[in-house]
Write a protein that binds this DNA or RNA. Structure first.
Lengths: 209, 209
DNA sequence: CCACTAAAGTGAAACTTTTCTCGATTATTT
DNA sequence: AAATAATCGAGAAAAGTTTCACTTTAGTGG
């Protein structure tokens, strides 16, 4: 089985499957068929099986998958069998909300640093992290072994902050700013553009009128 | 030219192109080639032309596109030649951050209602909107002509809140809760799953190790 | 222990999206 | 006025993704 290139859509679905399995675990369900997962998350059963097939054979023909076992596999595949320290740059409303977002902690992401340039925000307490100066970026990344950075600064500052994260050795960046930013090839970038998402809705609404 | 089915990826890129064009407008650039847009937002020039081709012929061969004109077309296509009133359900950190998010206002999305079930949040002031009881959902949707709802409630409440939005006549939903929710066919749904995004990063980091 | 049923796994087909290539058109230069 | 350069638009090709249909295997009931 070749694991050359996994479609990003597959990875996103795996993440969703894993959360669905977690629900099943809590309900003490032991086995689950691809069709159950499929109807639970709104895809086809063939899709579920194809997605899993990239990584191995986890099921038993005629029976299905053991929930706990498959869940373990998925968490491992997603790299969630470990904890990740995360740094957030930008302590505005969005950065603060993300820092306090329970969904991250539940999945093994721990926000260990929040930095900002604005003196009014520095020293502010967010959860159990204190906002610090952006000058400490490199130091915090190094001492906390941070691989993942989250950018929640205004568009104008996004590229600059990203460059600093890259220079400090961060390997993956989640960008919430509404600006296209560039990173070297060996750094993984994902954009969560809140406006784009609303605009896709707007487009579809305008279309059906 | 058939406008039967536009890929969602195309719509998302149009949104990004339009913001890039807005920058050019501010810099008083008059014309732009598909290649300029392409390198500005990190796609291929053929991709830009194909995306635009779904909607018409906006350029001049040998020359390029008039920035202002193309910008106007894109805004129209995206349904941003009008303002949209938006209701947010869930006045927690994330809901509050979104309500105050400047990027929405800039693009014609106005948050006119924020509702919650929690009495501790009701009456709170967020920007110039006061948090109100979820009981007012139908009333506010009706009187404010709301088509777009944003769900920022905990996973357990997401489906229930969504059903209420649908019942009230909302036609498009942006779901931030980490739960797969179901809507009728005629309602447009988009999910912004913050954890999924981090997990895609985690997957790729784990892969390259 | 054999027939039957359920469901995973898989190769091929269908479909979708992106990239390539090239003819057409416009502006510019000589 | 003709040659040249730039760049769009579109059909074809390529690549990628999803769905289909079938084969295989494990468990179950007679």
């Amino acid at each position: 089985m070749k694991v050359y290139k996994i479609p990003e859509a597959t990875v996103m679905r795996l993440s969703i499957y894993s959360r669905f399995l977690h629900q099943l675990l809590e309900d003490e369900v032991n086995t689950v068929a691809s069709g159950d997962i499929a109807s639970g998350v709104g895809v086809s059963s063939a899709q579920v099986r194809k997605d899993l097939a990239y990584f191995g054979e986890f099921g038993t023909r005629g029976v299905g998958y053991k929930v706990e076992e498959l869940y373990g596999h998925l968490m491992k595949i997603l790299g969630l069998d470990q904890n990740w320290n995360v740094i957030i740059i930008g302590a505005g409303k969005l950065g603060s909300a993300l820092a306090l977002y329970k969904g991250f902690e539940d999945r093994g992401f721990k926000v260990t640093s929040i930095l900002d340039v604005d003196n009014k925000r520095i020293m502010k307490q967010i959860g159990d992290v204190t906002v610090e100066s952006l000058d400490l970026l490199e130091e915090r990344v190094r001492e906390q072994g941070i691989k993942i950075g989250v950018v929640t600064v205004p568009a104008a500052a996004a590229q600059d902050v990203t460059d600093q994260l890259v220079a400090a050795g961060v390997k993956a960046i989640l960008n919430f700013s509404p600006r296209v930013i560039k990173v070297p090839n060996d750094v993984i970038l994902r954009n969560v553009d809140l406006s784009v998402n609303l605009e896709v809705l707007s487009f579809n609404l305008a279309l059906q009128k």
